[in-house]
Simulated scan of single mutants.
Amino acid sequence: MSKKSLVPEAQAALDQLKKEIANESGMPVKNNNYSEMTSNQYGYMVKQMIEEQKKQMIDKYS
């Protein structure tokens, strides 16, 4: 399976969101390298990203 983005323009926004959530959570991220994170930390970060997206969708469609 290819890692090619369906919407290439969205990659920068996704990277920015990941960076913001990692910084807010105090997680170790250097130059978009998430290899020092534990699986629990990365899972938490993904959960936060989903929650943020839910909030944005609710605000948009309310």
Rank of each mutant, 00 (worst) to 15 (best):
Y61F: 05
K30P: 01
K18C: 11
L14R: 14
S35V: 01
M37R: 02
S2R: 00
Y34S: 09
I50K: 01
G43R: 05
N32G: 04
Y34N: 02
K3D: 15
K60E: 11
K3L: 15
K47E: 04
D15Q: 11
S2E: 00
D15A: 07
V7H: 14
A13L: 13
L6Y: 12
E51H: 01
E24I: 03
N23V: 13
K19A: 15
Q56S: 14
M49C: 05
N32V: 07
L6C: 11
P8V: 01
N40T: 13
Q41H: 09
K60N: 10
E9D: 08
M45L: 09
I50E: 02
Q53W: 00
P8I: 04
K4T: 12
D59G: 10
K3G: 15
M57K: 09
Y42N: 05
S25N: 02
E9V: 05
I58R: 10
K60D: 09
M45I: 12
M27W: 08
N40C: 05
K54D: 09
S35D: 14
I58D: 10
I21E: 01
K47D: 06
Y42P: 05
D15G: 03
Y34M: 06
A10R: 07
M1Y: 13
A22G: 01
L14C: 13
M57F: 08
Q53N: 14
N32W: 02
K54G: 09
Y34R: 10
Y44W: 04
Q48V: 06
S62W: 07
E20A: 11
E52H: 12
E9S: 04
G26L: 02
K18P: 04
I58K: 12
Q56P: 10
L14Q: 15
K60L: 12
N40V: 06
K4P: 02
E24F: 01
A13P: 02
M1I: 15
N40I: 06
M27Y: 11
A13D: 14
Y42L: 12
A13K: 14
Q16K: 15
S5P: 12
S5K: 12
N33T: 08
P8K: 05
Y34G: 03
Q53Y: 12
V46H: 03
E51T: 01
Q11H: 10
Q41D: 04
M1K: 15
S39E: 15
S5E: 14
N33F: 00
Q41V: 06
M49I: 10
Q53G: 15
Y42H: 11
I58Y: 05
S35Y: 08
Q48F: 07
M57V: 12
A13E: 15
E24C: 06
K3Y: 13
S2K: 02
S2F: 01
N31Q: 12
S2A: 11
P28K: 00
S62Y: 06
S39R: 11
L6E: 14
M49V: 10
